[in-house]
Amino acid sequence: MPGGQARPAISGLMMNLYLTAAVAGLAAGGAYALLGVCAVFTYRLVSVVNFVGAAIGAAGAFAFAMLVEQGLPIGVGALAGVIVGAAVGIGVGAIVTKWFAESPASTKAAVAVALLVGLAAIGLRITGGQHPHDFPELIRGSAFRLAGVEVTNASVATLALAVLFTLAANLFLDRSHTGLQLRALSERPVAAELIGIPVHVLSLWVWGVGGAATALALIIIAPQRAPNFLALSLLVVPALAAALIGFFRNFWVTLVGGVAMGMIEGLASVIPGLGEYRTALPFLVILAVLLWSQRGARWDDAR
């Protein structure tokens, strides 16, 4: 039977078509949101625009896939993947902390771009090959049906994880002693060191946690995304765009921005007549949001 058993009765209605498409973009949106929140987390605590964030997570996700291929149970493999993500994050963090602690944000961003180039090359080398790796599904099944779209448990889990991470990050930054220390650290690392905050160790913790969270996110979404290492690493583009929407400050706005971008992507797939320019739509939306939201900003901090 054409179209399967569950074609919505009123699919001819444009509104419903768009709603369906938007809901279909939810899975991607959750991933963007989670990665965006991780980017904000790293920026607020160690003031690095983390271009290499998704590549760090990709390292963890591929470690997971390769370990499971070696016969490890999925749960153990996922744990190992998260640990690898944390370890690679700490490795990158060590480079940034050791040599660039006092550098301006633009230098740190340039370092992150350079590291992305290197890490992607190494990652493709290790994980590439004639047969891409198979990503087992950590979370299976679908949670509920909305507008004719099955919302999978994996999408729900990514969204939930994003919300959880947002809550935890907010609480941690605003309420905990360590959080306050870390905020001091991001503002003036040397001054923070002078008043006895273990700057180096705390920064590495931030990188580790960011790496672990990104790795977990990518492990969950990878089975639906036909991943190769480079493609996963370049998820940093929508992630950073989401973070921009939240001004690299506000976790909740970032979360909403990420989800919205996924839904816009979904919508773009059904808008007729855009052709190959469809992929540019999310970019234009981001640009518009940025121009509007930052219309007051003028000076680079302290420059």
Binding site: V49, F51, A105, S106, A109, V113, L234, V237, L240, A241, L244, E276, Y277, T279, A280, P282, F283, I286, L287, L290, L291, Q294, R295, A297, R298, D300, D301
Partner: peptide, 26 residues
Amino acid sequence: GLPALRLRGINLAIVTLGFASAFDAI
């Protein structure tokens, strides 16, 4: 470059990356 007038330098890096990514597909 227009956003660069308002956006801080870092943001420009992200916008240009987004443009490159969209342009790739086109």
